[in-house]
Structure formats: structure tokens, C-alpha cells
Amino acid sequence: MAQPSAAYPSVAPVGVDTTRASIARVYDAALNGKDNFEVDRTVLEQVRAVAPQVNDLAWANRDFLIRICRFLAGQAGIDQYLDLGSGLPTAENTHQVVQRVRPAARVVYVDNDPMVLAHARALLEENPDTSIVTGDIFRPLDVLANPVVRSELDFGRPLAIFHIGTMHHYLGDDGAALLQTYIDAMPSGSYLAIAHFCDPETPESSELARQMEEKFVHSPMGSGRFRTHAEIRAMFGTLELVEPGLVLCDDWWPDGPRLAPLSPVRHCIVGGVGRKP
């Protein structure tokens, strides 16, 4: 397939350019991290005008990641992971969760933000089973041909590929075709996990989703699409969705009973895990 990401400025690396927001740094700011600048926090403040609890998008995304890591390492027996768009290191990164369950699990992170790469390399310096490589996750042919990816992961046996909180920053309409390139490279028994901003197309949440999209896209970050459930489901292709399917991130095997109602923005991010037969 064509690899069109160069057409979209939101996916270009910005490093430590303090005049332009970075996707990774905005996410870090939403998780109350310290590796962000005023321009990154400005993005959240703009969205907060229509969604006071905008930070919940990031927390729902992060909690979903942790739960799928435990499921895949513990229940599915997966011991190799390709985490696309890893973002700045924070608590409970993919390798930390899966390697607690499977100490020999191998994890390869891919990102193109120089600040992310520098932080991650320092964190992973003494972890021989975890690597990070420079790459544009929206150019799957390049990622899959990367020599580190090919040497660290065995594409002859099952693995997991993560697109957690990434595809809503891809502004093209060919996201399903892009992900199909990754799916085609996955051997039988592999899994693809996706978390994505969503327009639920309900009277209660659709207007909020579109208002947040408007703020994100016209912010210094320049991206953040809220696709419909059907559009996101199409990204899994013919993969078999693990129960409960494509649902709110908070509804994908939660850790316990829900004692308080979800905030409105948590109804605008969904996640799912698909298995290749």
C-alpha cells in the first residue's frame, strides 16, 4: 500500500520544539507528567473549554493498555510485542506489565519523537529484552522492514501489535488499509489492539465528541479525529474480536465493579483486541 503519512503534519516529529505541540508531550501532560511544555498544556486547555475532564481520555487509554497487557501475557501467552507510538515513558509501560507476567517477553517500541527516543533509551539501557527504534508508525512497510524489529521479534510465531491511542492522530481516510499491512504481517494466533477516540453517534455524546475533535484538530497539535464505531471496527479487518468486542475502553474487562458513573469524555474512547485465526 502507499505510505502517505508525510502529507499530514501532525505525524511529523517535533522533538523539543517548544513552539509546536507534540502528541507524546500532550499525552504526558494529560497523565500529569513533567515532560511537557506550555504549548502542550495549551492543547488540553483549549479542549477543556468544551470537555472539562479531557484528561480522562488519556487515563482511559492508559488503563486499557495495562489491562490488555495483562490479558495477552497471562491468558493468551504472548511473549513478543510491537508497541507502535509508545509515547514518553510513564508508570506501567508495556514492557513493565508484560515482563512481570513473562520475564523473558520481548518488546519493541516504535516512535519518531526525538524526546521520546532519548527518554526511552535511557530507561531501557539495562533491559536486554526491550528495544526502541526510530520509525513512523503510519509507514508500516518501513516499520516492518526495520532490522531491529526483524531481529528482536520472530514473525514466524504469534505476537501482539499495539496501536493504542495512535490512529486518531492519522488524518487520512485509509486507516483500515494502513492497518491491514500490519495484519498481513502477523502470523496466525497473533493479536492487534487498538484504542481510538470515538464519536458514539448518540444524542448524549456525539456533540461532545465533535466539539473535542474541533478543538484538537485546530490546536497547536493539529490532530485528534473522533471516528465512528463502524470506522474503527473496520480497522480490525477480518480479525476475530476478543470478547467483549470493540467497547468503551473502561468496559474492556474492568478491574472491578464500577462505583461511580463514567465522566462524559470516557464515553468517547473505545478499545478492542482482535485475534488472527
Rank of each mutant, 00 (worst) to 15 (best):
P261W: 06
R210S: 11
A76T: 07
F64K: 00
T42F: 12
A76P: 09
D79S: 15
E125G: 13
V39T: 02
A122Y: 11
R100T: 13
I269A: 05
D113I: 07
L84C: 09
L124P: 10
V50I: 07
V110I: 06
I161D: 01
P244I: 06
A12G: 13
A76W: 06
A49P: 05
A234K: 10
P200V: 07
R25E: 03
L179K: 02
A12R: 14
E243I: 04
G222F: 04
G256E: 01
Y182K: 04
I78R: 05
Y109F: 03
G272T: 02
S190L: 08
P114M: 00
S22L: 04
F162I: 01
I23L: 14
I161V: 14
Q46C: 08
D83A: 08
D154H: 09
A145E: 15
E231D: 11
I23M: 14
H267L: 04
G33M: 08
D142W: 10
L159D: 00
I164E: 05
A91V: 14
V148C: 08
T90C: 10
G172V: 05
P200F: 03
P187E: 05
I232Q: 04
G245Y: 03
G224N: 08
R41D: 11
E92W: 13
M115C: 15
A230T: 14
A105V: 04
G271Q: 02
V247C: 02
V97D: 01
T181P: 02
R100G: 15
A60I: 03
S22M: 07
N127L: 14
S151Q: 15
D111M: 00
Q96N: 06
T18C: 09
R48H: 06
I183F: 01
P13I: 05
P140L: 01
E201G: 10
D184H: 10
K276I: 07
R139W: 09
S205M: 12
V247Y: 00
V143I: 11
L259R: 14
D28S: 11
Y8L: 05
M235I: 02
P89F: 10
A104M: 13
V26A: 07
V108S: 01
G87P: 02
D83H: 09
A195F: 01
E201Y: 10
E214K: 13
S5C: 03
T19Y: 07
V14T: 03
D35W: 13
E45N: 13
P257K: 00
W59R: 12
W59F: 12
A185L: 08
P264N: 09
F138Q: 01
R48F: 01
P264C: 07
L57N: 00
P52S: 10
I232R: 04
M115N: 15
I137G: 06
D111Q: 02
G175M: 10
A7G: 12
A176W: 06
R48Y: 02
P9Y: 01
P244K: 07
P203D: 11
Q46R: 14
D255M: 12
A105T: 05
D83E: 12
S10M: 12
V247A: 00
G87H: 04
S190Q: 07
Y182C: 03
A105M: 08
I78P: 06
R106C: 10
A6K: 11
S151A: 15
D28H: 11
F216T: 05
A195N: 08
P257H: 00
I68A: 03
V242I: 14
H267Q: 08
G87S: 06
F138D: 00
V26P: 06
R106L: 06
